[in-house]
């Protein structure tokens, strides 16, 4: 187990693409897409397993030319952790209520944007936009046309199996 004070950014099973001021991460294991804003991306890219949270805060302070609090880094790490973007699970620093408090406190004090990791799940196939229900009348067509469903229509109850 890694020391959570020295978090490591996950590398395997991810496709990463940088866009201006953001980093896109696609998780091949879960088909989840994540968008890291500039602050979250900077924290993630600093998680090398050798740099502690206070050191990351210090590094970001010098990079961004303004004081960055440890709690802001933890706010990012909590979200990266929830999104499975760290090598090892980290004990959450902020429970939901205290996270709101932390966001308020850090938000007022911070000159930089709060870290945000936005996530969306891609379906197994973008063709999979209907449920795996089928009708007797169309036999197995509903099933075979939906790449996410098994191919055989059970009757009843009319679900692809």
């Amino acid at each position: 187990m890694n020391n959570p004070q020295y978090p490591i950014a996950r590398k395997n099973g991810l496709v990463v693409q940088e866009v201006p001021d953001e980093v896109l991460v696609y998780d091949l294991d879960t088909n989840k897409a994540h968008c890291l804003n500039k602050t979250a991306a900077a924290v993630w890219q600093s998680c090398d397993g050798k740099t502690s949270v206070p050191e990351i805060a210090k590094f970001l302070s010098s990079e961004m030319g303004t004081k960055v609090d440890d709690d802001l880094v933890w706010l990012a790490i909590d979200q990266l952790n929830e999104s499975s973007l760290l090598e090892a699970q980290v004990e959450p620093r902020f429970a939901s209520q205290s996270r709101r408090d932390a966001i308020r406190k850090i938000g007022i004090a911070s000159m930089i944007a709060l870290p945000i990791v936005a996530s969306l799940v891609a379906p197994k196939s973008a063709m999979a936009n209907t449920s795996c229900q089928c009708t007797v009348a169309t036999e197995t067509q509903d099933c075979v046309l939906n790449a996410a469903c098994p191919n055989t229509c059970a009757e009843p109850p009319g679900v692809c199996q």
């Binding site: 866009v19 897409a33 890291l36 936005a118 799940v121 379906p123």
Partner: peptide, 9 residues
Amino acid sequence: GNGIIEVIP
């Protein structure tokens, strides 16, 4: 970035 993840699905 947020637009692209909305298009991904």
